[in-house]
Every structure is written in C-alpha cells, then in structure tokens.
Simulated scan of single mutants.
Amino acid sequence: MGANSSSKQRAWVLFDSIVDEAAVHGEYSNPWVIDTTGALRYEPDFDTLQRLLGVPLLLGAATTTGVPALALDVWIAYELRRAGFDKDAVWPRATHPRILPAPVAKLLEKGALPATLQAELLARLTKTGNVKNVTHSSASILGKNYLKQVDVILTDWHTGPEVLISTKRMDSSYGKNAPNRVEESYGDAKNLRLRHPMAALGFVFGLRNDVFDKEPATADWLLDLLAKLGREDDAYHATCVVLVEYGDEVLPPGDNGADDEDRAVSAGLEPDDEDEDEPLVVADALIENDLKWLPKVRIDHARTPANLSPARFLAAMVEHVLDATPVNLHKRARDLRRALAPTPDVTATSTAP
C-alpha cells in the first residue's frame, strides 16, 4: 500500500477483507450455541477479533491514530450483524460510507430506484469522501446535555438509537491513563443514558494483558471499576474487557498507550473527517500478502473476569434490544436465538396426577 495513505485508510482495507472472509458472501454464522449444560449462550468469533487486532500492529499504528480502538469497533459491529440485526442499521457499516442513514442505504438496494439514477447515487455515496450532512466517518448522538461521539451504534429513524457502545484502548502507561478513561466513561454513560434510557448502553475496554505483570495494582483497580460501571442503575447496562496479548517486537514505536481522542470532536463541537479521502483501492494480491503477515495476537480468556467477558457483554446487548422491542421488530435476530433455545422438558415439571 502507498506510503502516503493514512493509517485508517489502510486499516479499513484490511479490516474489510478480514470481515468479508468471516462472512462468506455476506452470510454470518449464528453466534448462539447450546453449551454442555444445555444452556443457551453467545459465542463470539474470537478468531476474527484476533486477526482484526493484528492489523494496527502490522501497520505500526500507534494508539493515538485511533486504529487500535477501531479494530474493536469493527469487531463489535460485525458481532451485531452476526446476531441478526440489519446490516445497514449497524454502524460502522461493513462498507464505505461507514455512517449512512438506513433509509438512504435502502435506496442503494437493487430495484429501489431506476438503474441509471441508482448508479449515480451509488457512485456519489461510495466513491467520494463524506457527503455533508448525509454520510460520516463517525457518529455523534445527543445525550442529556451534549453530543457524544459513539463508536458502535444500532439505530433507525423509526426506533431511534437501540445500541450505544463506546470503546477505549490502552496498551501501556496504565496508571497514568486509566483514571482518566474511567472518569470520562462514567460521565459519558450518564449523559447518554438519561436521554436514551431504552437503548442498550455498553462500554468495551481493550487492555494489553502485560498490565498484570507491569502494574498489577492498576489492573485490579481498573477491572473492579469496569465491573461496577456495569452495575449502576443509571449508567451502562453491561461492560466488557478485551485482554490482548502480543509481543513487544510489534509494539508501535513511541506509543504511550493513550487514545488521545479529540475532546472537541468527541463532544460534537467539531465535525470529524467531513472531508475524508476516498477509500483506497488495493489489489487483492497485495491485501492477501499483508494478511499473511499479520502479527500473532491472542485473547487472554484465562484472566478475563466472567462478569466482564465479551460473551456475556454481547449477549446482554442483544437480549436488551430484543426485550425492549415488540416481537415484530428484529425478526432475524429473534429467529437466530429462538432456533437454538432449549425446549422445556414438560414431563419433568408436570404436576398432573
């Protein structure tokens, strides 16, 4: 890929290829499984997550570029589509533009418009940078008192926001950065929850697992607070930690582990990437070659607290949406879950004489 390409542009090319391989021809696997006890549980696609997390390491993208956290966003959005939610209602979308109102996306479907007009619209929306007030690189949602940039969203005009998930990433300097991240997240949760009490509100924290060796006290403090953030009645419905393991040899030089997000952009005071460059066009052979060299990344399940596990978190998000909406909405998501729901043993519970 060209040396002048931005880290995010280059990352999106690889992210899209990884997700396309995981969802062959747009068909997603059913995330619901029956475990050995006969209980229904959500099984995340960790193989895809590990490959996505390798992209920023391959590109040498420091945390300040936003690419490491973006890998989490792409995966969570992919999981929501696996769960059966409308692919165009989940942001970031699997194709450019990443933020596009679902009704507009429907116009791009075959037969929605005369062929010539549809081709023109498709070219306008997908081949250029963002169209002002129509497409975006990130989404800001109005909370109780201010706009807040949210990383993963499920929304449509007739339902409003139904899932609002924020992500953070920290790979070093844990004691220095952790307090700020927790404090910011708590305030963001209150702001969003008070305006959107019915939406599934979640927080995902990506954390390099060497924190347990370098700063064990910080690790204990951080995991404890993350769990408490998910128990507040007026904050997040669920929280999650993704413990990431990789070698020091692939750590981007000079990365201080802070995401260093633009506070003005995050609070909706300034637009984000309104003049974003066109998406990169890269030969399949070059993409395939890059993917062969993805650094090895592993998810540390052994040290992930059960109450902060990705499986529990994703199940909570999906079930909250289904519980908060009538049965005629999100039919595919309901059918995927219902297809594997255990059948009650009526003979075992019968009280008939």
Score class of each variant (00 low, 15 high):
Lys106Gln: 15
Lys106Phe: 11
Leu108Gln: 14
Leu108Asn: 15
Glu109Tyr: 04
Glu109Cys: 04
Glu109Lys: 06
Lys110Asn: 15
Gly111Cys: 04
Gly111His: 01
Ala112Arg: 08
Ala112Phe: 11
Leu113Asn: 09
Leu113Trp: 11
Pro114Arg: 13
Ala115Leu: 15
Ala115Arg: 15
Thr116Asn: 13
Thr116Asp: 13
Leu117Trp: 13
Leu117Lys: 07
Gln118Phe: 05
Gln118Val: 03
Gln118Asn: 06
Gln118Ser: 10
Gln118Lys: 06
Ala119Asn: 12
Ala119His: 12
Ala119Asp: 14
Ala119Trp: 10
Leu121Thr: 00
Leu122Ala: 02
Ala123Gly: 09
Ala123Tyr: 04
Arg124His: 05
Arg124Gln: 05
Arg124Tyr: 03
Arg124Pro: 03
Leu125Ala: 06
Leu125Ile: 08
Leu125Pro: 07
Thr126His: 05
Thr126Pro: 06
Lys127Gln: 14
Lys127Tyr: 09
Lys127Ile: 06
Lys127Trp: 06
Gly129Asn: 03
Asn130Pro: 11
Val131Glu: 10
Val131Gln: 13
Lys132Cys: 12
Lys132Met: 12
Asn133Val: 10
Val134Tyr: 04
Val134Pro: 08
Val134Arg: 02
Val134Ser: 07
Thr135Phe: 06
Ser137Trp: 15
Ser137Val: 08
Ser138Asp: 14
Ser138Trp: 10
Ser138Val: 07
Ser138Pro: 08
Ala139Glu: 02
Ser140Met: 03
Ser140Cys: 09
Ser140Thr: 12
Ile141Arg: 01
Ile141Thr: 00
Leu142Cys: 07
Leu142Gln: 09
Leu142Tyr: 05
Lys144Thr: 04
Asn145Cys: 06
Asn145Trp: 05
Asn145Phe: 06
Asn145His: 07
Tyr146Glu: 10
Tyr146Leu: 12
Leu147Lys: 08
Lys148Phe: 05
Lys148Thr: 11
Lys148Tyr: 03
Gln149Ile: 11
Gln149Pro: 09
Gln149Ala: 12
Val150Pro: 01
Val152Thr: 00
Val152Phe: 02
Val152Lys: 01
Val152Tyr: 03
Ile153Ser: 00
Ile153Glu: 00
Leu154His: 00
Leu154Phe: 01
Thr155Met: 05
Asp156Met: 05
Asp156Arg: 04
Asp156Ser: 10
Asp156Thr: 07
Trp157Ser: 14
Trp157His: 13
Trp157Asn: 10
Trp157Tyr: 13
His158Phe: 11
Thr159Glu: 10
Thr159Asn: 09
Thr159Trp: 03
Gly160Thr: 01
Pro161Tyr: 00
Pro161Ser: 12
Glu162Cys: 07
Glu162Arg: 11
Glu162Trp: 00
Glu162Asp: 08
Leu164Ala: 02
Leu164Val: 01
Ile165Gln: 05
Ser166Tyr: 04
Ser166Thr: 03
Ser166Phe: 01
Thr167Ile: 04
Thr167Glu: 13
Thr167Asp: 13
Thr167Gly: 09
Thr167Pro: 10
Arg169Pro: 01
Arg169Ser: 05
Met170Leu: 12
Met170Ser: 07
Met170Ile: 06
Asp171Gln: 13
Asp171Tyr: 13
Asp171Met: 10
Ser173Phe: 09
Ser173Met: 08
Tyr174Glu: 05
Tyr174Arg: 02
Gly175Ile: 14
Gly175Thr: 14
Gly175Pro: 12
Gly175Val: 13
Lys176Asn: 14
Asn177Val: 11
Asn177Tyr: 12
Asn177Ile: 14
Asn177Glu: 13
Ala178Thr: 10
Ala178Glu: 11
Pro179Asn: 14
Pro179Thr: 10
